[in-house]
Simulated scan of single mutants.
Amino acid sequence: MKVAVVTGASSGIGRSAALHLARRGAGVILTYGRNAEGGRETVALIEKEGGTAVALPLDLGDSGTFDAFRDSVAEVLGATWGRTTFDQLVNNAGSSHAAPVERMTEEDFDRLARVLLKGPYFLTQRLLPLLADGGAIVHTSSSSTAPYGVEPGYSAYAAMKGGVDVLTRCMAKEFSVRGIRVNAVSPGPTRTRLGDDAFSRFPEVIEGLAARTALGRLGEPDDIGAVIATLASEESAWVTGQVVEASGGYNL
């Protein structure tokens, strides 16, 4: 049995990725931030379908906690699956904040940097000794990095996700000596709780986003989770260093 670590799996894309990986037979160590109840719900959903999952807390914005998190992962691997390594890492946990350049504060900029770029970078570094040779890493990026359809207010967010795209290629090169593949999925507008559940608070924006999407609707978490699970699986054994857009043709 393969084992996956999925960050930010208390809801949305992370929950969907965890479920899709479990349906493919993987055990799942999933993380939650402030939404502990959501983490427990994801575990329950996986167990209801006959899978095995464990939820652990993780503050992706505080790299000082990563050593303790790695130790918790090692403990869970041994206690739950009798293993010392895991096979798939999904760096999905994130945060969002929109502001034009002239109103962006250093505090908000630094928070985005810690969660979206520094967090995945150093969490991957800490977990590498536990990631099995021949394993796979999938980052969650964003279509906000595309050179077309640039949206005002997303300069900092898009810059961090652009860094993730570059990081994906660099990690793919470095980790190839161990047979570890590294890819990223770039979602378009997707119905998640990101941005303080923005789509629930501002449903009037959905129609316009759907109109700009070739397939005519807003993305759903399962649209992205299935792609993440596919990239992490052996079906994608010859794919590495790629940023795969899963947006339904947003701004096409």
Rank of each mutant, 00 (worst) to 15 (best):
V244H: 00
V6A: 05
V115N: 11
N35L: 04
N251L: 03
D165M: 01
L123Q: 01
A44F: 10
L21G: 11
E107G: 04
G64A: 13
G25W: 08
V166R: 00
V185W: 01
L123N: 01
S141G: 11
M104C: 10
T105N: 08
E151T: 15
V177E: 14
A226R: 11
Q242Y: 00
G61Q: 14
D197K: 03
E106K: 12
G61A: 14
S176I: 05
H139Y: 13
V6I: 09
R111H: 14
V28E: 07
Q242C: 00
V28F: 06
A226P: 08
T7P: 11
T52I: 06
L19N: 05
N35A: 10
D196Y: 10
V182R: 03
T140N: 14
A53I: 08
R193S: 07
C170Y: 08
V164N: 01
G195Q: 03
V243Q: 00
A211R: 06
A55M: 06
R217N: 11
T145H: 05
F109L: 06
R181T: 03
F109A: 07
N183S: 08
G38S: 11
D59K: 15
R191Q: 08
G225Q: 10
M1N: 12
A146F: 14
G119N: 10
A9P: 04
R114K: 12
G78E: 13
T213C: 09
P187H: 03
F199G: 01
R24C: 12
A36K: 14
A79Y: 07
K173Y: 15
E75F: 12
S95P: 04
L45Y: 09
S16P: 13
G219A: 06
K173E: 11
S16I: 02
R114W: 10
V43C: 14
I29H: 13
T240K: 00
R178C: 04
G249A: 05
I29K: 06
K48P: 02
L21D: 04
E204D: 12
V177C: 06
K2D: 15
A99G: 13
P187V: 10
A229E: 04
G78W: 12
A68D: 15
A99E: 14
L19Y: 01
R34G: 15
M1E: 13
T85G: 05
V5Q: 02
R181F: 00
N183A: 00
G38N: 02
A246W: 04
D165Y: 02
T80L: 05
A17H: 04
A146T: 12
K2F: 03
E234P: 03
R169A: 09
T7Q: 10
Y154G: 13
